[in-house]
Design a protein around this nucleic acid. Sequence first.
DNA 1: TTGAAAGCGCTAACAG
DNA 2: CTGTTAGCGCTTTCAA
Lengths: 324, 324
Amino acid sequence: MKITMKEVAQHAGVGVGTVSRVLNNGSVKDSTRKRVEAAIKELNYQPDFYARGLKTNKTNTVALILPSVWHPFFSEFAFHVENRLEVNHYKLYLCNSSGNSEKEKEYIQMVTQNKVDGIIGITYSDIDDYVSSNLPFVSIDRYFTEDVTYVTADNSAGGRLAVNELSKRGCQNLAYIGGYQETPNETKSRRKYFEIECNQQQIEYQVLDMLEPLLDSWATIEAFLMENDTIDGIFTINDPMAIEVCKILKKLGKRVPEDVQVIGFDGQRISEGEGYLVSTIVQPIEKMAHSAVDLLIAVIEGKEVEKRTVLPISFGEGGTTKKL
Amino acid sequence: MKITMKEVAQHAGVGVGTVSRVLNNGSVKDSTRKRVEAAIKELNYQPDFYARGLKTNKTNTVALILPSVWHPFFSEFAFHVENRLEVNHYKLYLCNSSGNSEKEKEYIQMVTQNKVDGIIGITYSDIDDYVSSNLPFVSIDRYFTEDVTYVTADNSAGGRLAVNELSKRGCQNLAYIGGYQETPNETKSRRKYFEIECNQQQIEYQVLDMLEPLLDSWATIEAFLMENDTIDGIFTINDPMAIEVCKILKKLGKRVPEDVQVIGFDGQRISEGEGYLVSTIVQPIEKMAHSAVDLLIAVIEGKEVEKRTVLPISFGEGGTTKKL
DNA sequence: TTGAAAGCGCTAACAG
DNA sequence: CTGTTAGCGCTTTCAA
């Protein structure tokens, strides 16, 4: 049986309005409040947030749009987002857009219709027209042409750090290996600042940047590596790519990290609390998630927020670089 | 501005009841239906599912409870669940219980209050009392004492297959390395049938089974491996564990797969569409997710369903076993 | 400080 | 086959 406010009101000998006020911190005489709270507890009453949503157009629900959950970065991110939301009494709709921008638009439409209070989105597809600066929306890694709030790791510093860590460990001939998409996003800084830093330090480097979706990356990378046999340090766009590169290197008879050192990007761990899968530039995923949630809630509450949040990265030792 | 049914009705020159009937496939004269549909399209009307939920106690929402999303198996699973739900016009609340059974109970309570229509749960904690057999609930990998519907990969066959694949590749001295929890769950069959198969084939084997949460698994495993120096084939409870074991083996100067071959469990891929991270017993994650969703929806619709669904596994070559 | 009452947008029962 | 109407459980005026 479902307990409604009416029952609680009856039980406490007050009107439903009073119960509502108790729930929403309206002004109620202390003694009445006590009585109502007792009734709530006794009947184990829980407000119906559908009724509330209908009335207030506030749902305490946020949609998280991910391009895919396969990438461990996304799943860890989702994990932290949910945790932070929960603390703030929000629920999370998970939405895998799968690069399907129709589905993304659908969720964005949900905001405009008050079905979700806001959206956090990692989306590299072309939905710029739908994202206006006044709807509660926080983007990750991606700046839109409009001045949408976004959170990102310091990808530029990441690119530079990779060069430094590699060069510190004796690498003389670097390479960047990655994939990219046409839409502008912050991850492109990884390559850009890798190059800038190499140039500044006058280090030799090669670049293999493949347009996604990747068709036969294995063969492309293998060819690239065979052609550039003297490479002794590689920086990849992300950790999965680093793993693939390691496998290819092994096949080519190169030892990692003795012959070639590899640094990925993300900070992917073997499992919770364990070490890193590969040596990597670590994104502060938890911080990013928390910032995103905090910003979104601030926007929902009508506050002004900083448009751009950049969080610091660090280096994580994962066995694909030499010990210092 | 929000368009309501009333507007649509006015626009089409009918009553709201008729619009509702059109939406819910009630009997409406064809010409009227056309007119209403036109109005809906023209005004870009979208039903308010909060109002609907309030009225019908049907929310078209399912909660997915995961112990954590860190484990790639879970995230891939979530991905497929969401996709399948979406096809059936359901939305997904993501809930990371983090082993926090309070949070799990909270969501289970939501079902009883008609806030979600059902739950899919991977949960190893002790919430048996709350899971009654008549609420729409589908469990993964875990059977409860009550006759709750559940879906699982064929873990027994997986344990056996691991032994066979290892022995086929010349291993003579096997080991099982894993972690376990007290609550009964299907993953325990992995070890059990590994042992059964070894015994049947009269293959030597060792077992290292650690109670979770794992404190210093690295050291424990390292000691185990040093003590049992002749081991040449290892089967682990899951892929992350296989990766850790590989790293430890490397540190101990053993080559994988030349000296020691390793098979994990899950079928974790480097990234979407790529190869396997390690050689592994592949769970049909997508099928499991789809089955779970289909079963859950069937239960929600009041149909009788098979309590136990066991899906076949397979072997996936991932570079930590020798080529045949 | 509080109770009564008017809806929020929808479905379903009823009458036509 | 279709229009009208009574709520679903809640918040929020408006009076008292």
